[in-house]
Nucleic acid binder design. Structure first.
Lengths: 341, 341
DNA sequence: ATGAAAGCGCTAACAG
DNA sequence: CTGTTAGCGCTTTCAT
């Protein structure tokens, strides 16, 4: 199974033209080619099944058609969907995508930055696993164009593209308030990154803007999995039985909460409304009775590629660099109006 | 942000050796280098931050360190997990992975085969979207080494690696039979590929081996989503109210079935046991009360890379080519013993 | 143990 | 409008 393929020179020989002319046809330039010559060459290319060698082109032209994508873990459906968007947009732009998993480890991120430099990738899209800017700094040193997706990393002077986490969370809380809820719990995730900070900030802001006094005991720290929401419900009911709604960090926690509510005989949504982000869309999918905030994951990937292309071509617009993508509130039957207290 | 990096010649100049010697150090061969020379070179490499240019190496050596992975859709958690395994094993083998989504379309598969040939990928791992062998044939024409994952495609004389779908399904049915179940429904998915065929075959075989007469009315064609299982339960209860167990094509259908059962007042597992494959692990995750058959998705990816490397190095062992990977039955509390009729 | 040199397949500048 | 040619950065053979 040796892969010895047709070269441009062979095409030139058969078509009885110079190799350069073949290139001009393939690249549609930089020089014009007579229509009949072009046709002859295209015919030979077709007949021989010639496929230009991207490796040689990249070497010669000193530019690559490959971009790197470094994500924490493709098994997480959130990242999987971003990945899908990236690959689609890249493909539309004639780029290929090298996939790298940091496995939530800084060390691996740094490793893959080196790999991307070795591969001379045209650029890198990076969803950071931590809030450490070292990988970004290294890419800068290498002169590797890059864009940070979905996180804000301090100390990195780099274009970043995020979804409007704050606004999404604000919408959710506002929605609950508009329905008459006053005692709204927040299942927080105590991890030091952009998403958790923004969600908590929105929770405080929305309550404040509606003149509702913040009760710190309604903020329950949970882990981000099913059991987090499950134990969270028991905790909050214990702390404050008159809670009428819960805003959960993500939909997995929301589902855990839902189950705990059922077990405790708390009717959802009659006694308790639950809202969460669709970080892990399959979770909401298997439990469609939740209100979720839909994040543009696919769009994030697509726009990320576009922005990266701008950076590569040095026409990135600083004004647009941290303009967050809009989110959408998806209201299902779980949120219910309550009588104002 | 120009990416003008250090070259091997610059390293050679600074270290006052010939470029060739630098190569011998980087590649650990093919010629030996004096320890002190080596050290000097390594120091210079370190000091200058030299990273060998993979593009140039690939061109010169006529072998690539990149493999292609063509999957239907990375958003499907099943494929996402396979992808994870592929990337991990590839990384361990110093390979990079180009990710391609066929989006379940033959046309796109063919497109990406062309892209992989243009990129002169070392090989391709392919999870077919259809049972059409055209992409495989094209790869053969190109001389592109490749391995088919997770499907058996007829008419393609290619190494294929699959999980033991038949055995998994057989285990599940046998498990139910051993618990005393006699009227076991099967929620089938009528799509023409390996998985559905094997699962149905196992259903028939397990019943037959236990001397249970097959009742065709217990085989319900469903679509593979929540609603499939949901309507399936209503259908089967209608056809045969004395059904005590259901084997669902996948766990999403199983969850749909679970919900329908609740709505109909059928107690699970007391009145009805439900078993499904973990095609979409998040589904089972959000609903841990199901018995599932665990498939080695990550392992499939890892082994796929290994097999591909064998094919590339022309030492693929035909005996191992369609040896299926073992699956595991994960029994949770949902299956319950019933009194034999 | 090391240096010199010939390309890998291509792009693009230079020369008609 | 087209042919010739000089490399891109590297691997590896041929010398020494």
């Amino acid at each position: 199974m040796k892969n010895k393929s047709i070269t441009r020179n062979e095409v030139a020989k058969v078509a009885q033209v110079s190799p350069a002319t073949v290139s001009y046809v393939i690249n549609n330039g930089p020089r014009p080619v007579a229509p009949e010559t072009r046709k002859k060459i295209l015919d030979v290319i077709q007949a021989l099944g010639y496929k230009p060698n991207a490796i040689a082109r990249n070497l010669r032209s000193q530019r690559s058609t490959t971009i790197g994508l470094i994500i924490p873990d493709n098994k997480n459906p959130y990242f999987a969907e971003v990945t899908r968007g990236v690959e689609q947009m890249a493909s539309d732009s004639q780029l290929t995508v090298l996939l790298c998993h940091s496995d939530h480890m800084l060390e691996k991120e740094l490793h893959y930055v080196d790999v991307m430099q070795t591969e001379r990738a045209a650029g890198v899209l990076w969803i950071p696993a931590t809030n450490i800017s070292e990988p970004a700094i290294r890419m800068m040193e290498y002169g590797l164009p890059h864009v940070i997706l979905d996180r804000i990393v301090k100390g990195a002077e780099v274009p970043m593209l995020v979804t409007d986490i704050f606004h999404g969370a604000y919408l959710a809380i506002k929605h609950l308030i508009d329905l008459g809820h006053r005692r709204i719990g927040y299942f927080a995730r105590h991890v030091d990154h952009h998403h958790s900070a923004e969600r908590l900030r929105a929770y405080r802001a929305a309550l404040n803007d509606s003149g509702i006094e913040l009760d710190e005991s309604l903020i329950v720290g949970c882990d981000s999995h099913l059991m987090g929401g499950y134990t969270g419900v028991r905790e909050i009911i214990n702390r404050s039985p008159e809670t009428t709604a819960i805003f959960a960090y993500n939909d997995v926690m929301a589902i855990g909460a839902l189950r705990a509510a059922f077990e405790l005989g708390i009717r959802v949504p009659d006694d308790l409304s639950i809202v969460g982000f669709d970080d892990i869309p399959q979770a909401a999918f298997t439990c469609p009775a939740l209100t979720t905030i839909s994040q543009p994951k696919h769009e994030l990937g697509c726009q990320g590629v576009k922005l990266l292309l701008d950076v590569i071509n040095q026409r990135s617009n600083p004004d647009l660099e941290i303009q967050p993508l809009p989110v959408k509130l998806i209201v299902r039957e779980t949120t219910k109006e309550v009588k104002a207290v």
